[in-house]
Computed example of a mutant assay.
Amino acid sequence: MTTNLFEPAPPLIAATSDGRGFPVRRVFCIGRNYAAHAREMGKDPEREAPFFFTKWAETVVPGGTTIAYPPETANFHYEAELVVAVGKAGRNIAAGDALDLVYGYATGLDMTRRDLQFEARDKGRPWDTGKNVEQSSPLGLIHPATEVGHPGSGSIRLTVDGEVKQDADLADLIWSVPEVIAYVSRFYRLEPGDLIYTGTPAGVGAVQEGDTIVVSIAGLSNCVITVGAPARD
């Protein structure tokens, strides 16, 4: 019988509003899915096709967490996002059938080392060092779609220490939730436990140690985090 060299890390279990655990499998993040944000990143939304990047499941942390300011950056940015929690498997899903895969929705953040992202982008390199960062995917409570429906409109807002920084409507998404699910499913078989971060509105910016970030989306629980000191280990 084979023995392991070390104990594997336990699966990350996200919290749901009905008190059940949601084991997180993978994280897919949709890029530049609000026109105003695409423009503030220096891109033309009229000429862009959908695209996405991936992050490790271990980047997900619950709301209420104090996250460490990450190393190798001086420009750590917030990005408020509507998050889709996948509850059923599927590949090559038609947009008209995509919502059948959804378990529920949550508020979330895609925290980004923006300086490293831009450096990689300008050199034509992957974004991993800018995006796939420990504690960079804070997640609020996941609300089942049976409780909140399938939000296609409603406020999405982010504050830093009470000051509004991002303020938009989910209706401003360039690619809707069904379209996003259908697109990702062309490349990967979606599985229960997958999370899809659907993109962020305009207004992204840097945070500092001690800042408190609140993401609110109509009908969902807030996601609140505090930026802590850099990790020492």
Rank of each mutant, 00 (worst) to 15 (best):
T129P: 01
V102Q: 14
V164S: 06
P178S: 12
I93F: 02
V133P: 01
K123M: 14
A206Q: 15
P126Q: 06
T129L: 12
T198N: 13
D110S: 09
P138A: 07
A168N: 10
E209V: 13
L170Q: 04
M111S: 03
V164G: 07
V204F: 10
I93S: 08
L141D: 14
A95C: 08
T212E: 15
S153I: 00
P151M: 06
L190I: 07
P151N: 08
L195D: 13
G140R: 01
N132T: 01
G108V: 02
I93V: 13
D167K: 05
G162E: 14
E119C: 00
P192G: 10
Q135V: 00
G203I: 04
V184H: 08
Q208R: 11
N132V: 00
L170W: 03
L190K: 12
I93A: 10
D115Y: 04
N132M: 01
G162S: 10
P144N: 07
P178T: 12
L109E: 14
A206E: 15
V184R: 04
Q166R: 03
S153N: 10
E179Y: 11
P126K: 01
R125A: 11
Y103C: 05
F187W: 14
D122R: 01
N92F: 05
P178F: 12
Q117K: 04
L195S: 09
A202M: 05
G199H: 10
Y183N: 08
T107Q: 02
D128W: 04
F118D: 15
V177H: 14
T146A: 15
V164M: 05
E119P: 00
D194V: 01
M111D: 06
D172G: 02
Q117A: 11
I196Q: 14
R186C: 11
G108L: 02
T159E: 15
G203A: 06
S136N: 07
P178G: 11
Q135I: 01
T107R: 01
G152Y: 08
A168I: 02
G149R: 15
F187M: 13
W175R: 11
F118R: 09
G199P: 09
R114P: 09
D100H: 15
G162H: 09
R189P: 06
K131D: 14
G130W: 11
Q117D: 15
